[in-house]
């Protein structure tokens, strides 16, 4: 296992025109730990996650990965594309809609980055891609195109695509939200394995069970603000903030029958 990254988020602000999507967000993500971001839709948790690998550009504040500022050379001065790509190489990302490339097989999807970004030879890339696919339990589906895979299998290929690059940090943007309920478990299990190996993970999720059992810390966001960060028990069982209490009440009501 490669070394795990830490992330320091300091006073981050993000605007879409007049709308402020992130308001002075502060969050420390310790190395080798799982941080879950929860909160209502539109609270800014996906935006914050996407700022960590600079898929979204934050407007002010700092996000540092292992001490290195991402996206900017200095406040207000953008980083070169080459430097940004170098930083992104060690940050894996998994999307809600999987975003697999439909014209490539599962193996092709995983090997592509190894060839184009890491510069491996095709044969070597495919060997490593096959290992990554085996790790997520898809050794027998390597030759399938995404359209021939279930949602859960597609998301596992997407995870394999990310881990094959040997990242030190993994970002998950609602990885199970697009899945049928019976397929959620297989994806969460792969994520639990990664967590157990000591990967630094930031997970935007509505899976409170995952947050409760796998996360080391849980951050609650609402209206672009980070309302609270605590242990899973602290946030999910003994929340002090009235906004967190309200969110959890709604969550429990929706999930009781």
């Amino acid at each position: 296992m490669v070394e795990a990254s830490s992330v320091e988020i300091r006073k981050v602000n993000k605007y879409y025109g007049p709308f402020q999507a992130l308001k002075d967000v502060d969050l420390t993500i310790p190395p080798g730990k799982v941080t879950c971001l929860i909160g209502p839709s539109g609270s800014g948790k996906s935006t914050l996650l996407r700022c960590i690998n600079f898929l979204e550009e934050y407007d002010s504040g700092e996000i540092r990965i292992d001490g290195q500022l991402i996206g900017y050379e200095a406040p207000g001065r953008k980083m070169s594309g080459r430097k940004l790509r170098a930083m992104r190489r060690s940050i894996g990302m998994v999307f809600q809609q999987f975003n697999l490339w439909p014209h490539m097989t599962a193996l092709g999807n995983v090997a592509e980055g190894l060839v184009r970004v890491r510069g491996l030879r095709k044969a070597e890339a495919e060997t490593r891609a096959a290992e990554a696919l085996a790790k997520v339990g898809l050794a027998d589906k390597m030759g399938n195109h995404p359209s021939r895979l279930s949602g859960g299998q597609q998301q596992r290929v997407a995870i394999a695509r990310a881990i094959a690059m040997e990242p030190r940090l993994m970002l998950f943007d609602e990885p199970t939200s697009a899945l049928d309920p019976e397929l959620v478990g297989e994806v969460l299990n792969v994520m639990k394995t990664l967590a157990a190996e000591g990967m630094t993970m930031v997970v935007v999720t509505h899976e409170m069970g995952f947050a409760a059992h796998v996360a080391d810390q849980v951050a609650f966001m609402e209206k672009g603000e980070l309302v609270g960060v605590d242990s899973p028990a602290g946030i999910l069982h003994h929340p002090e903030d009235i906004r967190i209490q309200g969110f959890l009440r709604t969550y429990h009501e929706r999930n009781s029958f």
Partner: peptide, 17 residues
């Protein structure tokens, strides 16, 4: 979908690739 290019950008692929 925008996510097709985003997935490539996220692993550090060059825009040309």
């Amino acid at each position: 979908p925008r996510g097709q290019a985003e997935a490539a950008i996220a692993i550090g692929m060059r825009p040309r690739d």
